[in-house]
Amino acid sequence: MKSNQLTDSNARALFVPSKRDAAMLATLGLAALALALFFRYAVIQNTPLALSCEAGEESLICHVRLAVILLFTWNVFGVVAMVAAIQLWRPNVTAFGIGLVFALLGLVLYNTRLSALAIALLVLSLARPAPEAR
């Protein structure tokens, strides 16, 4: 019985974002999802826009379209999400937010494998002990 008391008293609190941080993370997540859905359905998969860009139109939207296509071709969204998900070992809200935003962008913009793994690591980081105060 005494060993259970020692274990309970030595246990550290889990990494849980504060209410303010959780609201900020939810807002960033929704904004990332909205941006990714806009890019996917209004810019990348828009056939008339794609045809005009491929025909040589030099507009800002065509340059943005090309940049987003190159980013998901090179798996940038998934790789950045995985790098930010490394915060699993020492959880913090900033790295969690960066990982969340890029993982959500990657899930919608064709980087599903790495982004899904990053989401799983981010969820696991919520079960980790909070870092000790310095």
Rank of each mutant, 00 (worst) to 15 (best):
V43D: 07
E54L: 14
Q45C: 09
E58P: 00
E54Y: 12
P48F: 13
T47F: 09
T47P: 07
R65T: 02
L28K: 00
A32F: 09
R65E: 01
L51A: 08
L30G: 06
A34Q: 05
T27R: 09
C53N: 04
V64M: 15
S52L: 11
R40D: 10
V43F: 12
L28H: 01
A26E: 06
L28P: 01
R40N: 11
V64Y: 14
I61V: 08
L35I: 13
G29S: 10
T27F: 15
A50F: 12
L66A: 15
E58L: 07
T47S: 10
V64W: 12
S52V: 15
A50Y: 08
A34R: 00
S59F: 00
M24W: 15
V64T: 14
L49T: 05
E58I: 04
L35E: 03
C53H: 06
T47W: 08
A42C: 08
L60M: 08
L66T: 12
I61Q: 00
L49N: 02
H63V: 09
I61N: 04
I44K: 09
A32D: 02
F38T: 05
L49C: 01
L30N: 00
M24C: 08
L33G: 04
C62Q: 08
E54R: 14
N46G: 10
Y41M: 06
R65K: 11
L49A: 07
V64I: 15
L30F: 14
Q45V: 02
Q45T: 08
L49H: 03
N46A: 15
L51V: 04
A36Q: 02
L25W: 07
A55R: 13
T27S: 14
F39M: 11
L30W: 07
F39Y: 12
L25Q: 13
F39G: 01
A42M: 12
L35F: 14
Q45Y: 14
A42I: 03
G56A: 05
R65M: 03
L25P: 03
V64D: 10
Y41Q: 11
A50D: 04
Y41K: 07
F38A: 08
A34S: 10
A50L: 10
E58G: 01
V43M: 15
F38Y: 14
P48M: 06
V64E: 07
H63E: 13
L33I: 06
A32H: 07
E57Q: 13
A34P: 01
P48R: 10
A55V: 03
L37V: 05
A34T: 10
A26I: 12
I61K: 05
L37T: 03
A55M: 05
L25D: 00
P48S: 02
G29M: 04
L33M: 09
H63C: 02
L37I: 06
E54S: 15
F39W: 11
S59W: 00
F39P: 03
